[in-house]
Design a protein around this nucleic acid. Structure first.
Length: 928
RNA sequence: GGGGGCGUAGCUCAGUUGGUUAGAGCGUUGCGUUGACAUCGCAAAGGUCACAGGUUCGAGUCCUGUCGCUCCCACCA
């Protein structure tokens, strides 16, 4: 048998084990060797990382939790599939590639679409390689043979099919509307992709007065910029704005109908500064009288509210900016200026013309593009939309009716709130990277050739392929028709929304669709509940008729120590998952991540930099745990190799029965917690069992009397329990254990080739019947040992000094007798001076430990004086008596009548124990 | 404007159908190292569970309010 190194070295284990798992096909559901029909299926599809670069700690958390779930269910005997894959991440990836090209002095606009896409595909390959490599390091047990990418041929076909089905139902339509426009990325984006700072950003509120047209003053007689533009005007209306440049596009001024200050102004006309356009003053209840001056400028082409106002009041829509947010020809003297340059110039000119009343500092709620950071400009454009009303209703019902369970439950409220207020989804993007919209238009030249066509024939064809589109178009337009495909691509979340079924082969009726759809679990961060989870549910129900999964588990976000999002701008506070696996090992990182917090709660990672290396205390703690387990295994293996076991397979000792009972208890609780998604709590229980029960106590007992059978069984079960949390180290140890344990020390799980394919422990299998509660019996021995240690520490008894002890053990006499050697060793008692009896006479000059079930006397001649001991016992007695009074009062109160029997029993047992201690102390005091 | 979350030991956090002595890790203090492990062992100190009410025999846990921090959603210029 190979010797184990003195400390656990993840680097010597992880890659080797992972390669072995992968090569042996252990991640594939077809390879499962242990199946329990009652366990059903477990199917989960990975939240596909964006091919934008590398993974961050959030992906580490996702991987840790999902692999934990997957390994747990696989070991429980559920038919288990975890599908991996990546997302093309349209806008984000295109932005990165454009940025990279810019470094080489290249621009997308100077390239052909296909040349640019070639660059993106190269980047995708590059990023994909890094990502999958990182995922493998983390140990995720996904079925790589089913790996998917959102722009694979099969998935692209699913996207076109979904689009066509929705189009044919009339749920997808094209319309000219106001959308959020990113003037840097030159595309429309959805509402969700616009981010605003809660407090707003520092800006100004400009108060500008517009002259009113009167009998005496019909309009400006002098040029704008002359300083005399408004000469002669006598009446004014003052508006407040945060975006002065939009004045150029104003087509009305609006006041509240109830606002008496302005009643006489309604129906008057104001003259727009700079442009000189006459604009009506209208009244609309949308105006907040208390804000600004109570008069609002209306720019229907550049503001969402004003757009609606413009529609309501049949105003003109004057666009003053182009796609890049430069002022256009409608901006008069400012044409050609950037919007912010225009703002600056216009404000200066307004001041010069005496139209700037005042400027106040103001926190502006600026919408910024999620990816570009550019200030979003509302813009009217022709886009594709998806009607969400019906789908949102269905998605809400799925949760309301319990077909989908959201964990933690509190997110249901957010879910309903968003779905109930849903707006149509702008799904087209003016990008090149993504799924091109499967709609073909008849070329305008053709339409011109057939004058009737425009009125009677369709000019757009939604089809799965260009050939299909032609087939349809030819029917209407004849053989010579020429089509061109819509140049836009779909929002990246459209394809992500199909992910749980597009990965399984939908729309085809594949074996995987039949076997693994719907999924059972969807696990992701709560930050993409709307972007992704809601869209999957809506599209899933609409397209497949079923909710795509039955449980949604949402984890928290990874944050820096000060609670901020980890960002690349603060590299000292951010931490990379691979950096941590490199320092502490994948198991340590994973154990930390799943035990760090509670479901749905954020995790703050406190990074310390020591000698240029990043350290995280809590991951270090998990690493230490791995090492502890490693050394425990080393001990077990050395004992097996030495063949010095006693009691083999025969009478299990009290210690053996105790560890088996504790194991059984732990298994029961762990399974309950795991099934209730409380992975952190489950992990802590396993940690406690391994470190405290197994290492601190049972291995110590084993040094006196070894039962190799029980030792192997216990370690085997502990490894299986821990495997979903720390897959590598447990597999490595388990393989060694299996190799070392022959013959009758073998346990059933050794029939399986890999720990990851072995069954998860069941409580029953660890139970050794017969004795009543070995846990309670052992507890009294542990109490005694701890109490003796305590006294030794208190009286500074040197570690190497063996002391005598007399134990009056009452009906625990057999228990103490059975543990005699252990007591001697662990409490460092002189074995030849250890008396255990039902009752022993109290010796003089001894410290007395009243433990309830037993009394321990430590004759520490010379170390304790009578008076001090009397005082110590007196104090203890006082404390106990206080507790007894409290307990008695409690039992005498309504508690005794109303509390459940079990609770009362517990209280009574406590009281009995206290009374026993009191008696012991009183008896002792009486003899002193 | 609406809706969440958090506030528990010096620090980071657990504590899920309310059960009466509130836990862990790290840190601190004392003792300890020739045999599984110093990435360790033994022991100790340390908390009016943010605050104020309420429900209950019983509240860290449920309800109401207040304060502080934080996040999400929302078209007040």
């Amino acid at each position: 048998m190979a010797e184990l190194s003195k400390t656990y070295d993840p680097k010597a284990v992880e890659d080797r084990i992972y390669a072995w798992w992968e090569e042996s096909g252990a991640f594939k559901p077809e390879s499962q060797l242990y199946l329990d029909p009652d366990a059903g299926r477990f199917v989960i599809t990975i939240p596909p990382p964006n091919v934008t670069g590398t993974l961050h700690m959030g992906h580490g958390l996702t991987s840790a939790i999902e692999d934990l779930m997957t390994r747990y269910h696989r070991m429980k005997g559920a038919r288990t599939l975890w599908v991996p894959g990546t997302d093309h991440a349209g806008i984000a990836t295109q932005a990165i590639v454009e940025k990279n090209l810019a470094k080489q002095g290249k621009r997308r606009q100077d390239m052909s679409r296909s040349d640019f896409l070639e660059e993106v595909w190269d980047w995708k390959e590059h990023s994909h390689k890094i990502i999958t490599n990182q995922q493998k390091k983390l140990g995720i047990s996904v079925d790589w043979s089913r790996e998917a990418f959102t722009m694979d041929d099969k998935l692209s076909f699913a996207v076109r099919t979904a689009f066509k089905q929705l189009y044919d139902k009339g749920l997808i339509y094209r319309d000219t509307r106001m959308v959020n426009w990113d003037p840097v990325q030159l595309t429309g984006v959805s509402d969700l992709e616009v981010e605003t700072e809660d407090e707003g950003e520092p800006g100004s509120l400009w108060f500008v007065r517009y002259p009113i047209q009167t009998n005496r003053w019909a309009g400006p007689r002098n040029d704008w910029g002359s300083g005399q533009w408004a000469d002669g005007a006598t009446e004014w209306i003052t508006v407040a704005t945060t975006r002065p440049e939009t004045i150029l596009g104003d087509t009305a001024v609006m006041v509240n109908p109830d606002d008496e200050r302005y009643t006489h102004r309604v129906a008057c006309r104001a003259i727009l500064p700079a442009i000189g356009r006459e604009v009506p003053i209208i009244s609309d209840s949308a105006v907040d009288m208390s804000f600004g001056t109570g008069a609002v400028k209306v720019t229907p082409a550049h503001d969402f509210t004003d757009y609606d106002v413009g529609k309501r009041h049949h105003l003109n829509f004057v666009e003053v900016m182009d796609a890049t947010a430069r002022m256009n020809e409608n901006a008069g003297p400012y044409a050609g200026l950037d919007r912010f340059a225009c703002r600056k110039q216009l404000v200066a000119d307004l001041e010069k013309e005496g139209l700037l009343v005042k400027v106040e500092p103001y926190m502006v709620k600026l919408g910024r593009g999620q990816r570009s950071g550019a200030v979003i400009e509302p813009r009217i454009s022709l886009q594709w939309f998806c009607n969400m009303q019906g789908m949102a209703q269905a998605a809400g019902d799925a949760v309301r009716e319990g077909r989908i369970k959201i964990v933690p439950e509190r997110f249901e409220k957010v879910w309903f709130n968003w779905l109930d207020n849903i707006r149509d989804w702008c799904i087209s993007r003016q990008l090149w990277w993504g799924h091109q919209i499967p709609v073909w238009y008849v070329k305008p030249s053709q339409q011109a050739g057939q004058p009737d066509g425009l009125n009677h024939l369709p000019t757009q064809y939604c089809a799965l392929t260009e050939a299909d589109a032609y087939r349809e178009a030819i029917k209407d337009w004849g053989e010579g028709v020429a089509l061109e495909q819509d140049p836009d691509v779909l929002d990246t979340w459209f394809s992500s929304g199909l992910w749980p079924f597009s990965t399984l082969g939908w729309p085809n009726d594949t074996a995987d669709m039949r076997a693994y759809y719907p999924n059972t679990m969807l696990e992701t961060g709560y930050d993409i509940i709307f972007f992704w989870v809601a869209r999957m549910v809506m599209l899933g129900i609409e397209l497949t008729g079923e909710a795509p999964f039955s449980t949604v588990y949402l984890h928290g976000l990874i944050r820096t120590a000060d609670g901020k999002k980890m960002s690349k701008s603060r590299p000292d506070k951010a931490v990379d998952p691979l950096e941590m696996t490199d320092v502490y090992g994948a198991d340590a990182l994973r154990f930390y991540l799943v035990t760090a917090g509670a479901p749905g709660n954020d995790i703050k990672i406190d990074v310390k930099v020591v000698d240029g290396k990043k350290q995280v205390e809590r991951i270090e703690g998990a690493r230490n745990f791995a090492n502890k387990l490693w050394n425990a295994a080393r001990f077990v293996l050395s004992k097996l190799a030495a063949g010095e076991e006693q009691d083999r397979g025969r009478h299990p000792s009290l210690a053996d029965q105790w560890i088996a009972a504790r194991l059984s208890e732990t298994i029961r609780d762990v399974r309950r917690l795991m099934d209730d998604y409380q992975y952190g709590e489950a992990g802590r229980l396993i940690y406690d069992f391994i470190w405290n029960d197994f290492c601190d106590w049972y291995l110590e007992f084993s040094k006196l009397s070894l039962n190799a059978g029980v030792l192997v069984q216990t370690l085997d079960a502990a490894l299986r329990l821990l495997h979903p949390f720390m897959p590598y180290i447990t597999e490595e140890i388990w393989q060694k254990l299996k190799e070392a344990a022959g013959g009758e020390r073998r346990v059933p799980s050794f029939e399986f080739p890999a720990l990851m394919l072995a069954p998860y422990p069941k409580a029953a299998e660890a139970q050794i019947p017969n004795l009543p509660s070995p846990i309670a019996a052992m507890a009294s021995v542990q109490d005694a040992i701890r109490a003796i240690r305590n006294v030794r520490s208190e009286y500074n008894v040197p570690q190497d000094r063996r002391i005598p002890a007399q134990i009056s053990a009452g009906n625990r006499r057999d228990t103490f007798e059975a543990m005699r050697d252990a007591i001697a060793m662990l409490a460092r008692v002189d074995a030849s001076a250890l008396t255990i009896a039902e009752s022993v006479p109290a010796p003089d000059q001894a410290v007395t430990l009243a433990l309830g079930e037993a009394t321990v006397y430590l004759p520490l001649a010379g170390l304790v004086d009578l008076a001090a001991e009397k005082k110590r016992l007196g104090d203890e007695l006082a404390g106990i008596e206080a507790q007894i009074s409290k307990s008695e009062a409690l039992l005498a109160s309504d508690f005794g009548k109303r509390a459940p029997a079990a609770v009362i029993e517990k209280e009574k047992a406590k009281l009995t124990d206290l009374q026993a201690k009191r008696e012991q102390i009183q008896a002792r005091l009486a003899t002193m």
